[in-house]
Amino acid sequence: MTRLFDEKLRPFELTINQYSLLTALILGGPTTMNDLAERLGVERTTLTRNLALVSDRRLVTVTPGKDGRERDVTLTPKGWAAAKAALPAWKAAQAEASAD
């Protein structure tokens, strides 16, 4: 299943994990890394790897949180545009997965 979504999202230079991260920020707004990991149901180390990739592309920003131990994650306009552009590919993958 992951392979199908990754294949459809490849032209947008996103994996399903990265796309899910972007959409979680669209739906839930800016949040801490801990809360985002919980929302996505992933380990913080997994989230850190995916955040590094999308942060390098300036799709999200990661900034120090209130207490210095936490990091805040915010979707950038470029990230919102990337998720929007990839939505038809995600829908196509969803339809194909549902048909199987």
Rank of each mutant, 00 (worst) to 15 (best):
L4F: 04
F5T: 03
K8L: 14
L9W: 08
L9I: 04
T15S: 13
I16Y: 01
Y19P: 01
L22G: 02
L25V: 00
L25I: 05
L25R: 03
L27S: 02
L27E: 04
L27Y: 06
P30Y: 03
P30C: 10
P30H: 09
T32F: 01
M33I: 11
M33A: 13
N34G: 05
D35W: 01
A37G: 08
L40D: 01
G41W: 07
G41D: 01
G41I: 08
V42A: 07
E43N: 08
R44Y: 02
T46C: 07
T48I: 05
R49K: 14
R49N: 12
N50L: 09
L51T: 00
A52V: 04
L53K: 15
L53F: 08
V54I: 15
R57W: 08
R58P: 00
R58F: 08
R58Q: 14
L59E: 07
V60G: 04
V60L: 04
T61S: 10
V62R: 13
T63P: 00
P64E: 05
P64K: 14
K66F: 09
K66Y: 08
D67Y: 15
G68N: 09
D72Y: 05
D72K: 04
V73I: 11
T74F: 00
P77A: 07
K78I: 00
G79H: 02
A82C: 07
A83D: 12
K84W: 08
K84Y: 13
A85Y: 13
L87R: 14
A89R: 08
A89S: 15
W90L: 13
K91F: 04
A92Q: 15
A93G: 15
A93D: 13
A95P: 04
A95W: 13
E96S: 06
S98I: 04
S98K: 11
D100R: 13
